[in-house]
Design a binder for these strands. Structure first.
Lengths: 382, 382
DNA sequence: CTCAGTTCCGTTAACGTTTACGGTTCCGGC
DNA sequence: GCCGGAACCGTAAACGTTAACGGAACTGAG
C-alpha cells in the first residue's frame, strides 16, 4: 500500500549515478552513454518509477498549445463541440493548456490551410473535424511526422495515422433509428427512405448498414430504399426527396442521418405527405425544435457534440501528458430526443450558454478558500 | 494574454511582508493579525491570485481519502458505479486520491454504520447512495459539521446539506418513456401501469409525474393507472401485477421504473399477456437481455451508472481541490436500449470488465515515454 | 526589572523535476 | 606536451507552495 513512490533520486542512488543522467536517460536526451542509459531504464522499470506530474508541471513552465480545427457554426453543432473542449480544458487541474481555434467556413474550404497553419505554428496537438477525410489524410501524416498527435472528432480519417477518434457510434445510431422506425410504424408495411451525405464517408455508410440490418432482421415488412445522397446541399436534398416521394407512394418513413432535415420535411409537406410519414432525424438545432414539438419529426438522434468535444480534449491531453491514452477510439451512445424530453435538452443548452456568458463577465478574480455552494442547476455532462 | 501568474511571493513583495504570512492569511491559519490578513486578502484579490496546484500537490504530501458508500451488487448497477469512480480517480492527473469502498448488504442495512465509519475514519469526502434518504439526512448533517463534503449518487437526500447530487434526469426518463409508450402503441387505447419503488422517494415521484404528464399531453387515449409500489420485493411486485392484470383487461402497457422488471415480466407471462403488453423497463442487467432480445421488453431506459460514478467523483474531487465545483447538481440524460442497439451496450460492458482485469494483472511498471498506440476499441465514456 | 507566555512574523528546508552550467575524461591534431 | 573539441556526467538553481522553526515584540505577573 503506502510505499513512497520512487523518484529520480532513488534511481540515481541505486545506480550510483546522478539525477541528471537519470533524467537524460529517461527522456533520451543527448549526453548519456548507451550503457548507463540502459541501466537507468532497467532500474526505472524494476523500481516501478512513475514520474511525478506535479513536480514536472511545476518545473517546466512550458504550456501545451493545442489547435482546434472545426467548421464554422452552420448549425450549433460545432459551437457545442468547441464549448465541450473549452469546458474540458478549464476543468483540467494544472491549467497549462492553451487552445487555439481555427475555424474554416465550409466543407473542404480552408480546411487544409487551417491544418497547415497549425503545423507551422508548432502546436503540441490538434483536434480536427476532417470534413474531407481523404484530403486531410496526407496532412495528418505530415503532422505525425512532426510528432504532433491528431484527434479526429465526429468523422474519422482512416489510415491517416491519427492518434485517436471520438464519434457517435454509428451502429447504435443506425440500429436504434431502425428499431424505432419499426416500432413506430407498428404493423404498417411499406418503403423506408434514408438520406445521408455521401456513401464515401465511413460513418454514413456504417449508419446505413446498421439501419438496413436492423430493419431487415426485425421488421421484414419494411423495405429500405437506396440511400439519397444530399452532399449537404439543401436544394439537392429537396428535389431528390420530391422525386422519391412520387416514385414510391407506399413510403411510410424517412431517416435523415445528416443535419439536412429541414428540406426533407419541406418536401414532405409540399407533397402533402407529412401526416403519413414517420420521420426520424439527426442532431438538434433551433429550426428542428418546432418540427419535433408538432410531431412532424417523431424523434431525433442527438449526437452529443459537447460530449464529443470534451472527450476529444481529454484524449489528447492525456496523451500529451501521460504519453498514452487509455482509449483512443471512443464511440459514444447517441441520445434520443422526442417531444417528451425535448425540454430537457433545450434547457441544458440554454443553461450552458448562460453559464458561458457568466464566465466571460467574471473578473476571474478567484479566492483560494472554499466558497460554499454554487447555483448550478441540471446539466448533462457528457 | 501571457501574463505570468501571480504567486505568493508577488503578494508578499507587494505588501512588504513575508511569504509565510501570506500563506497563513489565505488559509486563515492562526498566527496572523487581522490587519495583515485583510491586506493580504485584498491584495490577493486585486492581483488575481490563483494558487498553483502543481506546487501545492508537490509540497503537501497528504493524499485525499474519499469513502464510497454504496449498495452491494444486487445487480450490476453499483458495480458499474464503482467502476466509474475508479476510472475517474485513476484518470486524475495528480494521483493523490485514495478510495475506500464501504458497501452495505441491503437497502437500509448497514447504511448508517458505513457512514459512521467513514466519518470516524476522518475521510476527506464521501460519495454515497442514500437508500433511505430521510435516515441518512442527519448523518450527512453530521458530516457537514465535520467539514466532510458528501455527494449523493442516483438518489438525492434533500435538505441534508449534501454538497451535490448526480442522478439521471427524472423528467427526461419519465417523459421519454411515456412518449415511446404512446408511439409504440400507435392508435391503441387502454390503460397503462407504472411500477416504482415508493412514492416517498423524490426521484420516483418525479418520474411518475413526468410520465403522467407527457402521456396526458400527447396521448389522451391512454389512461395511466395508480402506481404500483414494489419496495424492491419481488414477490410483492409479482402479486400486485397479477392482481392488476386481472382488474384491468384493457391494460396495454407497463413502465417499470425500478430494477424489478423480471417479476413484472413473469406475471405478464403467467397471465398470458406478454404478447399484448408493451413493456418499458429501466436499467440493463444480464437477466433482462433475453427479454429485450425476444421483444418482450420493447425498450429499457439505461441509467448510465458508470457515468454517474465518474461525474460524482469529479464533482467531489474538484471541490476538494479547487474549493468549488462548477456544477453541484448533475442530471444525466438516460440512454435508450432496444433490440437494435443492445449489442452496443453489452459490448461496452464486457470490454470494460476485460480492461479492468487487464489493469489488475499489469505489473504497474510504467514507462515515462510515449508508448505508441493502445488497442482500445469503442467505449461509451459517459 | 525579569521572566514566562503570547502573538505575530520572517526564514528556510523540503517536495521531485527540469534545465543550464561547469567539470571531468578522452581523443586526435598540431 | 598542449590545445580544442566532443562526449559524458555531477551540481545546483529554479518552479510555487507548505510546514516547521526561531526570533522579535509585546503582555502581565512576580
Amino acid at each position: 500500500m503506502g510505499k513512497p513512490p520512487t523518484t529520480l533520486r532513488d534511481i540515481a542512488k541505486a545506480l550510483g549515478t546522478s539525477i541528471g543522467s537519470v533524467h537524460r536517460a529517461l527522456h533520451d536526451n543527448p549526453g548519456v552513454s548507451p550503457l548507463t542509459k540502459d541501466r537507468v531504464l532497467q532500474m526505472a522499470r524494476t523500481l516501478g518509477y512513475r514520474p511525478n506530474l506535479a513536480a514536472r508541471f511545476l518545473s517546466s513552465k512550458k504550456t501545451l498549445r493545442i489547435s482546434v480545427n472545426t467548421l464554422q457554426g452552420t448549425t450549433s453543432f460545432w459551437d457545442e463541440v468547441r464549448t465541450g473542449i473549452r469546458e474540458a480544458a478549464t476543468s483540467i487541474l494544472l491549467e497549462n493548456v492553451e487552445i487555439e481555434f481555427r475555424t474554416y467556413p465550409g466543407l473542404g474550404e480552408g480546411e487544409e490551410e487551417a491544418f497547415a497553419a497549425a503545423i507551422d505554428d508548432k502546436v503540441d496537438g490538434i483536434i480536427t473535424f476532417p470534413s474531407r477525410p481523404q484530403v486531410l489524410r496526407s496532412w495528418i501524416r505530415r503532422a505525425s511526422r512532426a510528432v504532433i498527435p491528431v484527434v479526429c472528432v465526429a468523422t474519422d480519417a482512416p489510415h491517416s495515422g491519427r492518434l485517436g477518434i471520438v464519434s457517435i457510434d454509428t451502429l447504435a445510431s443506425g440500429s436504434i433509428a431502425a428499431d424505432l422506425m419499426g416500432r413506430f410504424l407498428g404493423s404498417q408495411q411499406g418503403s423506408i427512405a434514408i438520406t445521408l451525405f455521401d456513401m464515401a464517408i465511413t460513418e454514413h455508410a456504417e449508419k446505413y448498414a446498421a439501419f438496413e440490418n436492423t430493419l431487415r432482421s426485425f421488421y421484414p415488412g419494411l423495405r429500405l430504399l437506396k440511400p439519397i445522397e444530399d452532399h449537404d446541399v439543401e436544394t439537392e436534398s429537396y428535389s431528390k426527396c420530391r422525386k422519391l416521394f412520387e416514385k414510391y407512394p407506399d413510403l411510410c418513413g424517412v431517416y435523415v442521418t445528416t443535419e439536412a432535415s429541414i428540406p426533407v420535411i419541406n418536401a414532405a409537406r409540399d407533397a402533402k405527405l407529412l401526416e403519413r410519414l414517420t420521420i426520424i432525424t439527426t442532431d438538434l438545432f433551433p429550426d428542428l425544435v418546432p418540427q419535433i414539438r408538432s410531431g412532424a419529426v417523431a424523434a431525433t438522434i442527438y449526437q452529443r457534440p459537447r460530449a464529443q468535444g470534451e472527450i476529444a480534449f481529454r484524449m489528447l491531453h492525456e496523451f500529451l501528458v501521460d504519453g498514452a491514452s487509455r482509449s483512443l477510439q471512443v464511440a459514444l451512445a447517441p441520445h434520443l430526443v422526442m417531444r417528451g424530453n425535448l425540454d430537457f435538452f433545450l434547457q441544458r443548452q440554454s443553461q450552458e450558454s448562460a453559464r458561458e456568458n457568466k464566465d466571460k463577465n467574471d473578473k476571474k478574480g478567484q479566492e483560494d478558500q472554499p466558497q460554499g455552494a454554487s447555483d448550478a442547476l441540471t446539466e448533462d455532462f457528457a
